[in-house]
């Protein structure tokens, strides 16, 4: 297992280096003169030049890159100009918010999509199969910002079932002490049921928005993999042995069909992190996605670089976790690795 982890990490290093280089170059060709923006509305060219020097923007690109990598090695991601805070603290503060939202969306999607996928495979070709396909495809065909706005309109404005789309907690609720950074878990650790419910209420609609978007790939993969398993020898054998169809499907087929689904999760998660950016914007969610968008629009380099790097590392770790999970579900994969 350890060997697997090290080898996976080693493989990830070149792409991380690639990410650092690409991000650096991309942020430097962004239009908009950071120095002019922050020198204020009435800045003289001299004032702009001063700020340029202060920010080190007048040095040659290669030296700026060297400075950046040097700081990076010390764990310094720079300071955001638009919020005035060190990027590393902002990211560590905001990452749990994004992760909690994305994971909730993913879990919600799994809970809905897997039964859908199983049903579609078992009743292949029937109306269940077709309507399942149409529903999930419709979900992935909706732009997330549109879904989000419609849900807010319906559940908050029209029906009044959901709380105001104002981020993770209502203005009067106190955030729990940070243990994991996930409000749902932290409130339970603190034993504060009321805040737990408040946090959950805030989370439902944005998580649903994400889940609707993620249904299709999961349901589709579950269906395909169930179909393959159901037609395999051992399922036929189990059926022939007279086991109940329910037992065959859940115990034999489903367990084996999970493998490809787990592998897809990595892709779905990355897909959701992208969609997250727009969802956070609609729901005022204080995550890293909305942070990165704001930074990109103000040509604020440091947060954009920090965000992308954090995402890349997250992605590598996630894939590692999936490999490990794969190993646990399927002992063969472990020994082969």
């Amino acid at each position: 297992m350890l060997k697997l982890i090290t080898s996976r990490l080693l493989i990830a290093i070149p792409s991380l280096i690639g990410v650092v280089i690409v991000t650096f170059l991309l942020t430097r060709v962004l239009p908009g003169d950071t120095a002019a923006y922050f020198a204020g509305p009435a800045a003289t060219p001299q004032a702009i030049a001063e700020i340029k020097t202060k920010l080190g923007l007048d040095k040659p690109l290669i030296i700026q890159f060297g400075d950046y990598v040097g700081a990076l090695a010390k764990g310094d991601l720079g300071t955001s100009l638009s919020t005035g805070q060190p990027v590393i603290t902002e990211i560590t503060n905001r990452l749990p918010a994004s992760a909690e939202l994305t994971l909730s969306g993913l879990i919600l999607a799994l809970v809905i999509a897997i039964p859908f996928g199983i049903a579609a495979a078992v009743k292949q070709g029937s109306w269940v199969d077709h309507s399942c396909r149409i529903l999930t495809t419709a979900g992935v065909s909706l732009p997330v910002f549109f879904t989000g706005l419609l849900l807010v309109y319906l559940f908050y404005f029209r029906l009044g079932w959901a709380p105001a789309p104002l981020g993770r907690l209502d203005a009067f609720a106190m955030a729990p002490d940070t243990v994991t950074g996930f409000y749902l878990i932290d409130t339970l650790i603190a034993g504060d049921v009321e805040t737990f419910r408040a946090a959950l209420a805030q989370l439902v609609i944005p998580a649903l928005t994400l889940a609707i978007f993620a249904l299709a790939p999961i349901a589709r993969m579950t269906r395909a993999s169930m179909l393959a398993v159901l037609s395999s020898e051992f399922v036929r054998t189990a059926r022939a042995a007279g086991l109940t169809p329910w037992k065959v499907i859940i115990v034999y087929a489903f367990r084996n069909a999970m493998l490809p689904v787990v592998t897809t999760l990595g892709m779905v998660f990355s897909f959701l992190l992208g969609a997250n950016v727009l969802v956070e914007k609609v729901f005022a969610w204080p995550g890293i996605g909305s942070y990165a968008v704001e930074a990109l629009i103000t040509s604020d380099f440091a947060p954009v670089q920090g965000f992308v790097l954090a995402m890349a590392i997250l992605y590598v770790l996630l894939n590692l976790m999936i490999d490990i999970a794969y190993g646990i579900i399927d002992p063969r994969a472990r020994s082969e690795a």
């Binding site: 706005l149 789309p165 104002l166 203005a171 914007k281 609609v282 005022a284 204080p286 909305s290």
Partner: peptide, 9 residues
């Protein structure tokens, strides 16, 4: 002060 980016909201 709280941040609400969408004017509809």
């Amino acid at each position: 002060w709280r941040m609400v980016p969408s004017s509809g909201n």
